[in-house]
Each structure stands twice: as structure tokens, then as C-alpha cells.
Amino acid sequence: MTARIGVITFPGTLDDVDASRAVRLAGATPVELWHADTDLHGVDAVVVPGGFSYGDYLRAGAIARFAPMMGSVVEAATRGVPILGICNGFQVLCEAGLLPGALTRNIGLHFVCRDQWLEVASTTSAWSSRFEPGAEILVPLKSGEGRYVASEEVLDELEGEGRVVFRYAGDNPNGSMRSIAGISSADGRVVGLMPHPEHATEPLTGPSDDGLGLFYSALDAVLATA
């Protein structure tokens, strides 16, 4: 079986081609999904990539959340289809209610663009199972609204249920609460993170190939339920 992973394109999406390349390098078949469509074409998993969907008008991810394709994604998530939101995709998943909390302007109001070390805080999600607990991976970070915030109650719940998937290692680049870089849904099938694993798939073009671990993990999750 060859897994098919859909990658959504919204107006303003920048990283859909990179996400599709990462899917292909991991051994799956990328499937293009258009924001105005509703057909997921029977994909086994979905990536909501980074960029500036709908120009980030109102606030990042707020309009994309109402795109016809996102209605299908929300329904797919209820069936346990693995969903990954990267950067703007993370913002979209939070706006859509698939993940708790919100992404706000970075502390200091500066856009951050750098290679960033992350600690793998949980390996129980569909997108992190290939990593060793506590492993550190190097992937690019590029965002102006990447500061994760949530109520103390939600943060305690995420911590207690092992749903903090990635943390910023070393210094906190954007002021995210509890240094959170990525979280999962309660069932571990939906994951959102601010840094860009799709830009860390080959040592020649990225700081590492550590990002492939997320896509290999998704393939494992898909094959386990096939």
C-alpha cells in the first residue's frame, strides 16, 4: 500500500510545494487539495501547510477556517484521519477548533526566521512516533505570529495528557507559553506546530533531515490502520 497524503493550497499559501516534496521523500504520494473544493479524494492523511492564507486578514487562519475544504478536514479528523498543521496551518487548526489555544504575535513583535532546535516531548502522536522521547531535532522557524497561548487550565491539561508534542529547546524564540512549539489533539491524530519540518528533509537544502520523522510517523499511523 502506498499512502496518499493531501496537501491543501489556500490563496496565500507558500509552503505547499515543500510539504508535497516532504511527503514524496518519505515514500508517500502527495495529493493536491484546493481550498474551495470539498473532496479529499480519499487521502489517508492531510497536511495544512504554512504561508499567509487569505492574506492573514482579520487574524492568521481566521478566514481559512471557513474554507470549504476545512469542513471536510474537520469531518475527517472525527474519523481519526491524521492531520498536520504547520505554521499558518497550526493557526488554521486552532481557529477550526481542532486544537486548543491560539497563536499570537511574537513577544517583542518581531518576525523570527532561524534554524531552531526542538525537543520531542511526546512520541505518542500520529506525527511523532518515529522519534525517541526527548530527542532534539533541528528545523527552520519563520513566523511573526507564533507565540502559543492558552489558559492555565488548558496548558495543565495538555501537559497532563502528554499532548505537548514539541518544545523549543534552549531559548524561547517567540514567548510561547511553557515553550510550547507543537501540540496534539486528545486522540493524538491531529498535530500542529509552528516550526517547519517540511524544510528539513535534506541536509543539502535544510539544516537537517530531521523533519522527515514527522512524515514517516504519519505513514506508520496510516499503515497501522490499513
Rank of each mutant, 00 (worst) to 15 (best):
L138A: 14
R147W: 04
D187K: 02
G80A: 06
G175T: 12
F166L: 14
R178G: 13
I86L: 07
G108C: 05
D16V: 02
T225Y: 00
P133R: 10
R59G: 01
G97Q: 13
V149A: 10
G42T: 12
P82D: 07
G146D: 02
S129V: 03
V112R: 01
S185G: 08
C94E: 01
D44F: 09
V23F: 08
A67M: 13
V222F: 09
C94P: 04
H110N: 13
T124L: 13
A224I: 06
T78G: 08
P195M: 05
V165G: 07
I63W: 01
V112C: 05
W117I: 09
A169H: 15
G134P: 08
V139P: 04
E198P: 08
L14D: 06
S20V: 00
V46S: 04
D115S: 14
S125M: 10
P207A: 14
L193V: 06
Q116T: 15
R24T: 09
R189W: 03
T123G: 11
S122L: 11
S128M: 11
G85R: 04
P207R: 05
T201P: 00
I63H: 02
C94T: 15
R167C: 14
A224P: 03
S185H: 12
A67E: 05
V120K: 00
D44H: 11
L25M: 14
V92C: 02
F166C: 08
H35T: 01
V164K: 03
E136C: 13
G51L: 03
E132T: 15
I8W: 00
S125G: 10
I8G: 02
G211P: 08
A224E: 13
T29F: 08
H196C: 03
D16G: 08
A200G: 11
D220Y: 01
G101C: 10
F111Q: 07
A26S: 12
F52Q: 03
A224D: 14
T38F: 00
G89I: 02
A102F: 06
G42Y: 00
L141I: 11
T78R: 15
E75N: 09
V164Q: 07
T124Y: 04
A169S: 15
F90N: 01
C113E: 15
V191S: 06
Y54E: 00
D37C: 00
S143F: 01
V112E: 06
T205Q: 04
Y148L: 12
E119V: 14
E152I: 11
P68V: 15
V191F: 04
V190R: 01
